[in-house]
Design a protein around this nucleic acid. Structure first.
Lengths: 128, 128, 128, 128
DNA sequence: GTGGTCTAGACCACC
DNA sequence: GTGGTCTAGACCACT
């Protein structure tokens, strides 16, 4: 279910966080669903348990996960809502990036068509 | 001319690179223009000379700068062209970011109007 | 009669203890009253019998319960008195918490009115 | 400056977090102030660097600290404000605790005088 | 020197 | 079995 690229320069625990969040957003993971155990996932991905723990812990503090000692980790009921809310706050990153592209002479049409292409491609890919 | 935020998480040398490149792109710095000396800039910004050096070296290897031993550093004649060419490569970042926003439910219109606003704001800010 | 939240971070056995003690304090459970059997409660709450057992054992060692081998568990005659005595010890927690609130600038009135509201709400909710 | 009780059952990293936050709240630590280095503090307290790191990292994500790789950790400018805001949200804990005390027969006056005593004791202990 | 990530392996409480 | 904390020791990028 998860895939890690140990050669990537983005930390392993961030790769995990990103994937869990994407699964929540796409509806593959729903509220209440259990996540793989720390140890189980650690052997499956050949990654140290502490690294998995760090990812889960961060997701917990973001309210995406509920980790219950002795029982396991579960997707929070309002996980998708939280992630959607967080995303809106990060619209500022778009501004910066587009400003740089504009400065470098990338024509506006190139950006716009690119954006439209991505949204078209998305279409009905929700699983819920 | 340059401004460094020592509290920022983006490395100082990257802040420098970004500013030099922006100055080149906006025409503030043109081919042949000299850059501040490593030592001079280091005291002006209260930054370790090694850090300035690292930024200049990176810009040199990108072909934006020409460092002439004993003379100093100068903007390359084709600096702007090189940067414009490189920008196209960074369109991929746009894809990733927009894909994440789309996934999180940010409506397409929000993104498009944002992009248009930035391009409109740019207007005629070129200095060349 | 009992309710467990398996998602809660407070251990299940503590949730149980708290509820039994509250029932004793509110007079719902009186001296001599029998408690549900370990096995019965375990299936009713979908909880591991060991967990129920752990809660009962702890209550026993606190003198709130009397577990009679082969007969079951019963509320101790002086259970309410013991709990009331123990409560005084927990006044220290109040000190810590209020100190933190005071430090963080929460005004004294906010705390006082809050306390009074809770005591007023309590009113005559005793069942004895 | 810091003190750790290795025998306490509250985790070392939480003890650290609590102390840093208290120092910020009491004005001992002000915005921009540097914190002890991870390694330095680790030897001073005879604690593993990872444990210090975990505490600092958590404080960073709470916005109390700014950790700048290669330079060190610094108190955030709005650290005190953030902590004050967080404290107000945690008034609910007071409710729970007082409710339990009330249930156990602790008289209202005992609680009120206790609260007043703490606020009186506080008086002018701010260092700013 | 600084913070940040990762591994390995231990121990604990809880279920 | 589960998650959570801690230690020890390594490596990296940045200043």
């Amino acid at each position: 279910m998860f895939f890690i690229d140990p050669m990537s320069r983005t930390p392993i625990y961030e790769q995990l966080i990103e994937q869990v969040e994407r699964f929540v957003l796409t509806g593959v993971l729903k509220g209440g669903d259990p996540l793989p155990s720390v140890r189980g996932l650690s052997v499956e991905l050949s990654v140290n348990p502490n690294t998995i723990q760090k990812a889960y812990s961060e997701l917990d503090s973001r309210g995406v996960l509920l980790s219950v000692p002795g029982r396991g980790c579960f997707v929070a009921g309002d996980a998708a809502a939280r992630l959607t809310a967080r995303a809106a706050e990060r619209l500022g990153e778009l501004d910066e990036l587009v400003a740089r592209l504009a400065l470098a002479g990338v024509p506006q049409e190139a950006v716009l068509t690119r954006v439209q292409a991505i949204y078209k491609e998305k279409g009905g890919c929700r699983h819920d």
